[in-house]
Amino acid sequence: MSEATFTLDGKTIPFREGQTIMQAAMAAAAYIPRLCYHPGLKPHGSCKLCTVKVNGRHTASCTYQAQPGLAVESDTEELNGERRSLLQMLFVEGNHFCPSCEASGNCQLQATAYELKMMTPHYDHFFPDRPVDASHPEYLLDFNRCILCSLCVRASRDVDGKNVFALAERGIKTRLIVNAESGLLADTNFSADDMAAHVCPVGVILRKRTGFSVPIGQRTYDINPISALPQPKAGES
């Protein structure tokens, strides 16, 4: 039986029934920008970076089921321009100070911004006041860099079975919280073995006292741009 296929920017992509466009594209090593998608977790469709055009209509590729014969556009000037605007909004909503961030070089937000040639933040910075939670002996939460991707929420709930993290409030006030009356990570059952400890795409959930131990030139995205890296498979962080 011949494989079902669709086209992504003119390239033929095979897929299995039930796969999303994102899953099929990743299996074929075709890069679609994304921040809230992880192959080991249910898709959330919230960051909108993976938005593609399917038969001319915008949709999130991480939630859209692949179907035979679809004509999917992704790497176009229009879509990349929209992605840049989304990135710029993410940058100004938080406090993303790359020069002194220990996630620099390993950060998917930074790497995606480089990939999509985001040159300036464009919008006015919000400069939110978000104190660091350093209560846990091994891990630190720097909420300044949170992009509300909810990967930690899903990892903790669906894989770790713990519900350590949640997104509280709504709209512009949405924020990441932890499951403790004190509001402190030290008072949750968070553990270094949790998937949630390793899934943050930016610099929020950080192992303490290890920052900057990898020299410049040897960090993840020093070596290859994010689009050229091997695509992670389900179960990988």
């Binding site: 303490k208 920052g211 900057f212």
Partner: peptide, 14 residues
């Protein structure tokens, strides 16, 4: 103030 100590050598050089 309020930043982790291992970040300081990278931040203050700015």
């Amino acid at each position: 103030q309020g930043r982790p100590y291992w970040e300081v050598p990278v931040m203050v050089q700015r």
